[in-house]
Simulated assay, not measured.
Amino acid sequence: MSLEVPRTGYAKGRTTRAEILDEAMKLFGEVGYRNASLREVASRVGISHPGLMHHFANKAVLLAAVLERRDEVDGLELQSDLDGGLDFFAALARVAERNASRAGIVELYVNLSAEATATDHPAHEYFQRRYADLLGHAATAFSALRDAGRLRPGVDPATAARLTIAAMDGLQVQWLLEVDGAGERVDMSAALGALHRSLLLD
């Protein structure tokens, strides 16, 4: 008698896990991490609370998995753009362009990054590392432009890096707030590109 576990069981488990991550991402974006409950996530997926905890032991573990999944997807897309010949800033503009079609992800990061300024938030260290990494990559790219004689005189690479990240964050907030506005929503990618052009020599 075979003791092999049917592969359909594994496939179903992976599918359920993916559904949990998708619904958790949406809920964390809608109400924030602190106001979200595992029972609500389970209800949205159509499973029991114990069934959800079979995959994720607690809410902090679920949050970490959501962020890890998003980083994996976003990292692959960013690297693909870089491998395709785009420079770092053009690749960032592409990130902003893609985000314009996925409001849930923008909402997730806007809400969580604000919540995570509290030192007791489970994503506090994650966002500290994330910002440090982004600033480091941007500063390195601006330093290379300065060395190539393309950065405007007087522009400090580290300051330009902070302006870039601040602009990305601020544009996302504006974009979310304009969803029900009377005018057109801000073009995040175009605005980010305009900022970079203002920092560079023609």
Rank of each mutant, 00 (worst) to 15 (best):
E4W: 04
E115I: 12
V186T: 14
Q79M: 05
V31L: 06
V66L: 05
M53D: 06
G29Q: 09
D156Q: 09
G13S: 13
G84D: 14
F88C: 08
A91L: 05
E19G: 02
F127P: 00
E72L: 13
G75D: 06
T8N: 08
A167C: 11
F89V: 03
E107I: 00
K12S: 09
T164D: 07
T16L: 14
L201S: 07
R146D: 02
T117I: 13
A158T: 10
Y33C: 01
E68C: 10
L86P: 04
L151M: 05
V179Y: 06
Y109D: 08
S37Y: 01
I47H: 07
L135I: 10
R44Y: 03
R34S: 04
D156T: 05
E30P: 03
E40L: 06
A139T: 10
L192Q: 10
A114I: 11
V31P: 00
L151Y: 09
R152N: 02
P6V: 01
Q174A: 14
E115Y: 13
G29R: 09
I20W: 06
D83N: 12
A167Q: 08
R185Y: 05
A144T: 10
H55Q: 07
A148N: 06
A160W: 11
L78R: 15
A144M: 11
H55A: 06
Y109M: 12
L199N: 04
L201N: 06
S198Q: 09
R69K: 15
L86V: 06
A57K: 15
H54C: 04
H54E: 08
S37F: 01
L92W: 07
D81G: 03
N58K: 00
D83P: 06
Y33S: 00
L76D: 14
A190S: 09
T164F: 14
V95M: 15
Y131S: 13
S80Q: 10
E19V: 10
A161F: 06
H49M: 11
E77W: 02
V66A: 08
L63Q: 05
D83M: 03
L201A: 08
E40C: 01
E23G: 00
E23L: 11
L151V: 04
P122F: 02
S198M: 10
P50L: 04
A191Q: 11
H54V: 11
Q128R: 14
D22H: 15
E30F: 05
G46V: 01
L163D: 00
A96P: 04
D180K: 08
L67N: 02
W175L: 10
S80M: 04
A160H: 07
L163M: 11
D74K: 10
R70A: 15
A144V: 09
I20L: 14
R69S: 15
Q174P: 02
R44E: 03
A138F: 11
M53C: 14
A24N: 08
E68T: 15
M53Q: 15
R185M: 05
P153K: 03
A158V: 12
A123H: 03
L200W: 04
E40I: 01
A103D: 11
